[in-house]
Amino acid sequence: MLIMSDVSKVYPGGAMALQDVNVHIEPGEFVFVVGPSGAGKSTFIKMLFREVLPTTGSIFVNGVDILSLTPKEIPFLRRQLGIIFQDYRLLPDRTVFENVAFAMQVIEAPHRKIKRQVMNVLDLVGLRHRANAYPNELSGGEQQRIAIARAIVNDPVFVIADEPTGNLDPETSWDIMDIFKEINATGTTIVMATHDKEVVDAMGKRVIAIEKGRIVRDEKEGVYGYEI
């Protein structure tokens, strides 16, 4: 469960990024966040894992007021979240296996569990056979699939994705979306900022549209709604 109430964000310098945002996301939902560039999508997403703090309002993740967390508690919030970026953010000097295992080493999982679990998620994203490859030997779509594997390897409650298909061609984007659908089917909540009109329209999931920092639309089975 994810609740934002009356959240506003003013950046230093006076730029108003978000204004009076109220959102309620139930467990297991698949939510697209759409809107023109600079509308506040990124700020919205970054607030969920506490990279950006709102100026006013409150944010609850699974009943925890994440604004009241001390710096020491932030890592434990992030362990419940799987975060995926447009630019994959893989480590170039580590193999696919190591990149995924990294997320488990960080939370001090035991060796044997790491091996099993990493192989499981690599299976899920269909890249088990590339476990020993390095990221630069993979295509963009494959790299993003590794990033997804890394995000879900610790069984997060939420997966938060910031334009995950922004750098990919339409066909590859569909492969990626299929993986997200599969993850969502296991009960994981997904919040995804995207510009991908076709995907949003075809998926028929909840759509939150942000314009000039305000939520202008929140529909259960929404469409992208903007001309590209």
Binding site: P75, I83, A103, V106
Partner: peptide, 16 residues
């Protein structure tokens, strides 16, 4: 630095 940032996103504590 990239590695450190990713570590933070996947929930590494400062001491780790």
């Amino acid at each position: 630095r990239k590695e450190v940032i990713i570590m933070k996103y996947v929930g590494a504590t400062d001491w780790f």
